[in-house]
Simulated assay, not measured.
Amino acid sequence: MDAVSFFRAQLEREQALNRKVLQQVPEGKNSWKPHEKSMEFGYLAALVAQMPGWIAMMIATDGLDLDDKTSGDKFQARASESNEALWELAEENYLKAKSALEGTTEEHLEGSWAFRMRGVALNSGPRLEQIADTFTHMAHHRGQLTVYLRLLGAKVPATYGPSADEKVA
């Protein structure tokens, strides 16, 4: 299987999991966080919703500098004011990633991509490795989100296996 097909299939699997988790996000809790050093709940939920869009950005660009106000600002997650807005954000970013993957090539995925802050590359390498890391990073933040859900008394859906709230046959 080629990388484009692999990533398209992975996007479908991961987006299905994102939807299950994001559907459990209660409204009115955006500023809640389990610890003073933790990120706010609304930011974390928006981050999970937005992360598939990073794939499209990685395909369309050679890198991202978060301190560059012309491009970095639009990749900072912002809490959604309603569940409907959160779900729209998730769907919009999923569709961007799907479209970008459908329009790219193996050769392009082998090209270099870099993540920078203040002009310093924090992570760089072949685009396909950076995209693979994005899926892992997204699963990590989705896992954090399930912990927040549990602490808030919301249901935790099954993702890679059963949860206390959702058994898998």
Rank of each mutant, 00 (worst) to 15 (best):
R13W: 00
R13S: 00
Q15V: 02
A16I: 03
L22N: 01
L22Y: 02
Q24G: 14
P26S: 11
P26N: 11
G28C: 06
N30I: 12
W32I: 12
K33F: 06
P34R: 09
H35I: 02
H35R: 12
K37T: 13
S38M: 07
E40Y: 13
G42P: 14
Y43N: 07
A45D: 07
A46Y: 02
A46V: 09
V48A: 01
A49T: 00
M51I: 05
G53W: 08
M57P: 00
M58W: 10
A60Y: 01
T61S: 05
G63I: 07
K69Q: 15
G72Y: 14
G72K: 11
D73S: 05
Q76P: 00
R78E: 08
A79L: 09
S82Q: 11
E84N: 04
E84S: 11
A85K: 09
A85L: 07
A85F: 04
A85Q: 15
W87A: 08
A90Y: 01
E91M: 09
Y94R: 09
A97G: 10
A97I: 04
K98A: 14
A100N: 01
G103E: 09
E107F: 07
H108K: 14
H108A: 14
L109P: 13
G111M: 14
W113N: 06
A114P: 08
R116I: 01
R118S: 15
G119M: 06
A121V: 12
L122K: 06
N123W: 13
S124E: 14
R127M: 09
L128T: 07
A132N: 14
T136F: 13
H140E: 13
V147Y: 02
V147H: 12
Y148A: 02
L149S: 07
G153L: 08
